[in-house]
Amino acid sequence: MITFENVDVIYPNGFKGLDDVNVEIARGEFVAIIGLSGAGKSTLIRAVNGLVPYTGGTLTVGETVVDPKNKSKLRRLRSKVGMIFQQFNNVGRISVLNNVLIGRSAVTPTWRSLIGWYGAEDKEVAFQSLERVGIVDKAYNRASALSGGQQQRVAIARVLAQDPEVILADEPVASLDPPTARKVLGDLRRIQQDLGITCIVNMHHLDLARDYADRIIGMRAGRVVFDGPTEEATDTVIEDVYQRSLTAEDIATADFPVSLEDLPAEAVAGVVAGEPDRKP
């Protein structure tokens, strides 16, 4: 379904985001990508729908080769590839239903979008998507008025309204509290299985990846350093991916919305020492 052949991404500033990636993902697979912050997980996922243009190799989704230069071809591809974000990326000031209808953009004539008059079948699809994620009762609420878990469900419904073959999810539960994270990820997993959608999900929490994914891909410095079924992703293997021993933080079910890795090193040192930093 999705094939990376020697794919490179070089950012405009010359930084190599992906380095010779070769991955083949089958239809209906649920793949988790793990790796430390900065490993290139987002870059890999964004290359698939062209949000980050790849600069070398060949990237194929279904039958189509992804062509970052060809805008209209890219739009056609994106209509079948949904994307979910860490920050939900809903439009806060409009209703949940209108957010979900954004997922219908590619199949809606522009003039309908402009005057905000969607057809009956578009609305039907949107409502079905909301039913699937279980928040149909919130259809006419403002998106910004929902909790984090509900907002991410709106985002999933928006993606489902695209009738996607592939769903890309960039740290979809990293902003949610642990029980909600599990519920949302469980919903995504169930829907993905029901509809036979191929799913690529970035995570930095090993336990979630192990519980929900069929297959785990480990990344470090823009390269794929592990690729195998979930059972093979033992602690030793993951320690190799992370290049350090696993901490309770990596595996613990109790999860933090913000991981310590995201903080600057000094701040972490300060927190550990239990004192604000003080210059000598």
Partner: peptide, 15 residues
């Protein structure tokens, strides 16, 4: 963020 979401859904510029 929402702009990127609209892009990722295949919306054109006007949409």
């Amino acid at each position: 963020g929402p702009l990127e979401a609209a892009d990722a859904a295949g919306a054109n510029l006007l949409q």
